[in-house]
């Protein structure tokens, strides 16, 4: 079997990378990180998969059409949070309107979590879209071609 060590290592590493991306995503309030970094780390897991198993296998796991939908959903999630705070009577992206009775700014926490989620989804799907389109244009190259 070709490239056995790489394939086994990728299989072992894939889940921890996704888990770390989720940690960075949801721990952004407390430590370094946030939606941008989490989205990139999430995309990197699938890029590693594509390097090892080939782009066609990765496209079976995460098709391009789903990525386009995710790109739009992420952006609309962010903008939708802003519109929702306006409908609740606050300013655009004024998160205090989400929970105005809270004494410790719970609305700010909810709002930041929501928009960071939108950022993460958009960044991950956009990075993978760009990667798919750049690497999908050429057939696999031989080792000697480098």
């Amino acid at each position: 079997m070709e490239r056995l060590i790489l394939k086994v290592t990728t299989k072992i590493l894939f889940a921890p990378i996704i888990l770390f991306a989720l940690y960075v995503q949801f721990h952004g309030d407390y430590g370094p990180g946030g939606g941008f970094q989490a989205g990139v780390i999430f995309a990197v897991a699938f890029i590693l998969h594509a390097f090892c198993f080939g782009l066609d296998e990765t496209k079976k796991a995460l098709p391009q059409k789903a990525l386009i939908v995710a790109m739009v959903i992420g952006l609309m999630f962010y903008a939708g949070t802003g519109v929702a705070t306006m409908l609740l009577g606050g300013n655009l992206l004024g998160y205090d309107a989400i929970d105005p009775a809270s004494t410790h700014h719970a609305g700010q926490h909810y709002g930041i979590l929501l928009v960071e989620w939108g950022v993460g989804v958009t960044v991950a799907s956009t990075m993978l879209t760009i990667f798919y389109h750049f690497t999908g244009r050429e057939p696999d190259i031989d080792q000697e071609d480098w």
């Binding site: 952004g28 309030d29 407390y30 430590g31 370094p32 946030g34 790109m71 739009v72 992420g74 952006l75 962010y78 903008a79 802003g82 655009l92 992206l93 998160y95 410790h104 700014h105 700010q108 926490h109 709002g111 930041i112 928009v115 960071e116 939108g118 950022v119 958009t122 960044v123 956009t126």
Partner: peptide, 26 residues
């Protein structure tokens, strides 16, 4: 009331800027 000030500035004080950044990536 968020411990990480960078996140507070990025997502709340300047949330509109970050919306623009997300739009640039999109």
């Amino acid at each position: 009331a968020v411990p990480n000030i960078v996140t507070a500035v990025l997502a709340s004080y300047r949330g509109f800027d970050t919306l623009g950044e997300t739009m640039v990536i999109f």
